[in-house]
C-alpha cells in the first residue's frame, strides 16, 4: 500500500504510483509537515528521555534505602503505568486548558503568569506541553528499575570505600554508576523505542496541532490514517518499521552482548 495512491476519499483512483508517497514526504507536497514531525520526534524522544532518566534516577537514590512504607510508596508512584496514554492525555489536556485549566490557575497564584495562557493552542508551547506530560508519565518506570538495580549493589563495596575514606561523590561515580551501568544502558535503550511508539498521548492532548507543531512521526501517521489517506500512512508506517527494525536488532545484539559479558 505504501506504493499505491490509496485514498478512501478518492476511491476510484487507487493505483500503483511507485515511490511517489515517499518522495512526497521527503521533497514533495508533504515535506514541511514531515520534516517538522521528524525534528519534533527527535526533541520528543530525547528531551522526554533525559528528564525521565534524571528525575527517575534522583528519586531512585532517595528510595534506595528502604524506609517505613517505602513499598507502598513505590506502589503508589507506579500507578500511572496502568493507565493508557490516551487517558493521561485527556487528563493533561484538561489541566492545560487555556481558559479554566488548573495549571494556569496555579501559575497565576504563584505569580509566574498574569493571565491564563493557551499552552496547547500556541505553536510555541504545544510540543513543550506534551513533553511535560510525557515526562510525568515516564519517571516512575525509571525510578522502579533503577531502585531495584541500586538495591542489588553489594553493600561491601560501600563499606570498603568508607574504610578508604571515600566521599559521597567518589562513591557515586566509582561504585554506584559502574555497578548499575548495564541496567542503565538497557533501560534507556528500551525507553527510546517506547517513547517513539507513543503517539497516544499526543493524539488525545493536541492531535499534533496546532498546525502540526506538536506532531511526531507516529502521530502524523495516525492523522493520515484518520484522513483515510492510507497510501501516505503506509509509507510513513514502513519508514517507522524500518527504523524500529534496525534499532531493535541493535538493541537485541547489545542485550546479548552484555549477557555474555557477565
Amino acid at each position: 500500500m505504501a506504493f499505491q495512491s490509496y485514498n478512501l476519499v478518492n476511491i476510484n483512483n487507487i493505483k500503483w504510483i511507485g515511490f511517489d508517497n515517499f518522495t512526497n514526504l521527503f521533497s514533495g507536497s508533504e515535506q514541511d509537515d514531515f520534516k517538522l514531525a521528524l525534528w519534533n520526534t527527535v526533541k520528543w524522544v530525547f528531551i522526554s528521555l533525559a528528564f525521565q532518566f534524571l528525575i527517575g534516577f534522583a528519586l531512585a537514590l532517595l528510595l534506595k534505602k528502604k524506609f517505613h512504607g517505602s513499598a507502598v510508596y513505590q506502589g503508589l508512584i507506579f500507578f500511572p503505568w496502568a493507565v493508557s496514554g490516551f487517558l493521561i492525555g485527556i487528563m493533561w489536556r484538561w489541566m492545560f486548558n487555556g481558559t479554566s485549566g488548573v495549571i494556569n490557575d496555579i501559575l497565576i497564584r504563584m505569580g509566574i503568569l498574569d493571565q491564563p495562557f493557551g499552552f496547547l493552542a500556541n505553536t510555541s508551547t504545544s510540543l513543550a506541553s506534551v513533553i511535560v506530560a510525557n515526562i510525568w508519565y515516564g519517571i516512575p518506570f525509571f525510578t522502579i528499575m533503577i531502585t531495584a538495580a541500586l538495591r542489588g549493589v553489594a553493600p561491601e563495596l560501600y563499606e570498603a570505600a568508607d574504610v578508604d575514606g571515600a566521599n559521597v561523590f567518589i562513591k557515586f561515580f566509582k561504585i554506584t554508576v559502574p555497578s548499575i551501568k548495564s541496567v542503565l544502558m538497557l533501560t534507556v535503550l528500551l525507553r527510546v523505542i517506547w517513547i517513539f511508539n507513543f503517539p497516544d498521548l499526543i493524539y488525545s492532548m493536541t492531535n499534533g496541532g496546532p498546525g502540526g507543531s506538536s506532531n511526531i512521526i507516529t502521530s502524523l501517521m495516525m492523522q493520515k490514517v484518520q484522513s483515510l489517506d492510507y497510501g501516505a500512512a503506509s509509507a510513513i508506517g514502513l519508514l517507522c518499521i524500518l527504523f524500529l527494525s534496525v534499532y531493535t536488532i541493535i538493541y537485541l545484539l547489545f542485550t546479548k552482548f552484555t549477557d555474555s559479558e557477565e
Binding site: M1, Y6, I193, N197, P199, T218, M221, M222, V225, Y230, A233, S234, G237, C240, I241, L244, S245, Y247, T248, I249, Y251, L252
Partner: peptide, 18 residues
C-alpha cells in the same frame, strides 16, 4: 517474539483495515 513486541500494531493500521 521479542522483535514483534517492539513494533506496535497501530503502525500496520492501514493494511489491516484493508
Amino acid at each position: 517474539f521479542l522483535f514483534t513486541q517492539m513494533i506496535p500494531m497501530f503502525i500496520m493500521l492501514a493494511p489491516l483495515y484493508q
